[in-house]
Nucleic acid binder design. Structure first.
Lengths: 211, 211
DNA sequence: CGTACTTTTGAATCGCATCAAATCTGGTGG
DNA sequence: CCACCAGATTTGATGCGATTCAAAAGTACG
């Protein structure tokens, strides 16, 4: 009975079949709140519009592992078919998302081949991103990992780090002290510039990195 | 014009629509040969039946990075929609696969919603596997990474390492020397047993690892 | 039998984790 | 407005684990 949302963003409007448009709901998440928690049964799929969300899990020793950081796009696509979430989704800053109920989403995927194909394209992008993350984590030094992230993940405006360097450190799988030291070294050397919440690679100094 | 293959394995026969069955071709790859190479245009999708294949890429410094190791299942799902392969697929041992031409596969995905949905399930499994790999690579010690791999990737018969420990080392993102040392330490301690090409965790000694 | 590769052990070095402490920051309440 | 607190940022010192280089022993294969 919702009125059609005039503000459903165009990327989502194109991706989703029109039957689902009316089921989309904008949601706001305060900094620190969970979009969902490990163990819960998935009922909604979230599409992050603004803000920042991490998928994280508490490791064996109580240390926090960041599986994914998202500043836009779907979060937890892999949970679409799962019985339970395998990790927490936490808003690191105030975040806006659009949520879609999973049941109708699944029904649409089962019956609408064109939509299913667009979803496959989405999943493929996600696969490539995860490949890059694995590649990044297999690098051995903090500097190499950071540069790899800047080369593969930063937009033309650089890499937003509104949620702080400590989060970035966990995403790179290093201690925040090591990352702070690496950052000032790179700044001294002029390779990287840091300004109000954005990291930027300076110059074409980018070490050639395939794709 | 091929005769229907009497030996199309049942998992593939169930996944693929019958129209594609006749297009499937068994292929054999000698140890060391490439199923495909970075830069080439994807024409076929490969499903590994036996043997072992890695997706690998040469890093900036000429070091080899293993993106994925497969002992069965599709290889390079993410390349289905790509213009070019982004990495090499190399047979580490003599390998048998079934290859399917991509064009008809894409056509089927576009029009057959049920098949597209089964493909989405396949991609979701792949996503979860890659998440586990990222989680593994964010662990800091060789021992933790190896145990994580054994807990998440080993079957009831243990983990086959027919292709050698050096490959395993690269998959874990560590030097082979470090892995050899770690292995003998774990064997001395009785945590792990190594026998003709198979690694096995001994006892219920598994450090509780979620999923 | 020789070649190529893997497996194994040793020793030196390096980078990072860790612990500790000081400074800076934004936000809250008196 | 100021005092205060929690968290982020920064710097320093220490130890550990992994990398790296080196070399020897084992193994498969032609």
């Amino acid at each position: 009975m919702n009125a059609p949302l005039p503000d459903l963003p165009s990327d989502l409007a194109v991706l989703l079949p029109s039957g689902l448009h009316v089921l989309c709901e904008p949601v706001r998440h305060a900094r620190g709140s969970c979009l969902f928690s490990a163990g819960a049964r998935p009922t909604h799929m979230f599409h992050v519009r603004s803000g920042e969300v991490t998928l994280q899990r508490v490791g064996v020793d109580g240390d926090l592992i960041i599986l994914q950081r998202s500043r836009g796009g779907f979060i937890g696509e892999a949970s679409l078919l799962a019985e339970r979430y395998h990790c927490d989704a936490v808003a690191l800053v105030d975040t806006a998302s659009i949520r879609i109920p999973i049941r109708p989403l699944l029904d649409a995927l089962r019956t609408d081949a064109a939509f299913a194909f667009r979803w496959i394209e989405t999943l493929n992008r996600e696969l490539r991103r995860l490949r890059l993350q694995s590649e990044r984590l297999s690098l051995k030094t903090v500097e190499a990992r950071l540069l790899h992230l800047l080369e593969t993940d930063a937009g033309p405006d650089g890499l937003p780090i509104a949620s702080g360097v400590k989060t970035l450190a966990r995403e790179l799988g290093v201690s925040h002290e090591a990352l702070y030291r690496c950052l000032s070294r790179l700044e001294d050397r002029g390779t990287v510039r840091r300004a109000d919440g954005v990291l930027r690679l300076v110059g074409g100094a980018q070490a050639a990195c395939p794709r």
